[in-house]
Computed example of a mutant assay.
Amino acid sequence: MPLAGVRVRPATAGDAYRLADIVLAATEDQGRLPAMSLEERAEWREGFAEWSRRTAELADPANALSVITAEKNAGTPDGEVIGRLRVVRDAGGLRLAGLQLVPEAQGRGIGTSIVRDLQERAAHEGVPLLLGVEKDNPRARRLYERLGFRKTGEANGEDLLRWPT
């Protein structure tokens, strides 16, 4: 169960630019955003938003793109979009293919809560939960290792992790 006031809902085409902005902000906050000109950044944002829009419109349960929201106050049931979640289902099980939170929402237990929910879902379905974490992302690695993920290999500059081991 996610933290009080935090919700995960399917992404819509209208969320596309906000999701791109979340990925940019989270990656930049981690010091992992490659140097880009303003033009290159705008081009990346446009491409990511277009991919997000197409993915949301397909609404494929095997490639679920979601937004993470947090209530601004008690009177706002569907509050501010603070994160992005992508979960892929394939023959290998469930794969956490993306979890990003805006910097202001990090360190509050939101990511932990979401990953634990995915672990419960994987356990209930009797499948592993898999993910790839970039080698230059120590904060994410610490989260996943704390939650019981273990390295099983490497591919494309990422360490491949699995739960349960």
Rank of each mutant, 00 (worst) to 15 (best):
P2R: 12
L3A: 13
G5P: 03
G5D: 14
V6G: 02
R7W: 09
V8M: 11
R9L: 14
A16H: 01
Y17L: 11
D21I: 01
V23T: 08
A25D: 11
T27S: 09
T27F: 01
Q30R: 10
Q30I: 00
R32Y: 02
P34L: 00
S37L: 06
E40P: 02
R41L: 15
E43I: 03
E43F: 08
W44V: 05
R45D: 06
R45Q: 13
R45S: 14
G47R: 13
A49S: 08
E50Q: 12
W51E: 14
S52I: 00
R53G: 01
R54L: 09
R54F: 00
T55F: 00
A56T: 00
E57L: 11
E57W: 04
E57P: 01
L58K: 14
A59M: 04
P61Y: 06
N63F: 06
N63C: 07
L65T: 01
S66R: 12
V67R: 15
A70Q: 15
K72C: 07
K72D: 15
G75C: 10
G75R: 13
D78M: 13
D78I: 07
V81E: 02
V81C: 07
I82A: 00
I82N: 05
R84N: 11
L85H: 03
V88E: 12
A91T: 11
A91Q: 13
G92R: 15
L96E: 05
A97Q: 08
Q100W: 15
V102N: 08
E104P: 00
E104A: 15
E104C: 01
Q106P: 05
R108K: 14
V115M: 07
V115T: 09
R116W: 08
D117G: 13
L118H: 08
L118M: 13
L118G: 03
Q119L: 01
A122V: 09
A123M: 10
E125D: 14
E125W: 08
E125M: 10
E125G: 04
L129Q: 05
L131F: 09
L131E: 03
V133Q: 14
E134K: 10
K135E: 14
D136R: 13
R139P: 06
R141D: 09
R142N: 05
R142K: 10
L143H: 00
Y144G: 03
E145T: 14
R146P: 01
L147C: 04
L147K: 02
F149L: 09
K151V: 11
T152G: 04
T152W: 03
G153R: 03
E154M: 04
E154F: 00
L160E: 12
L161P: 01
P164M: 06
T165E: 15
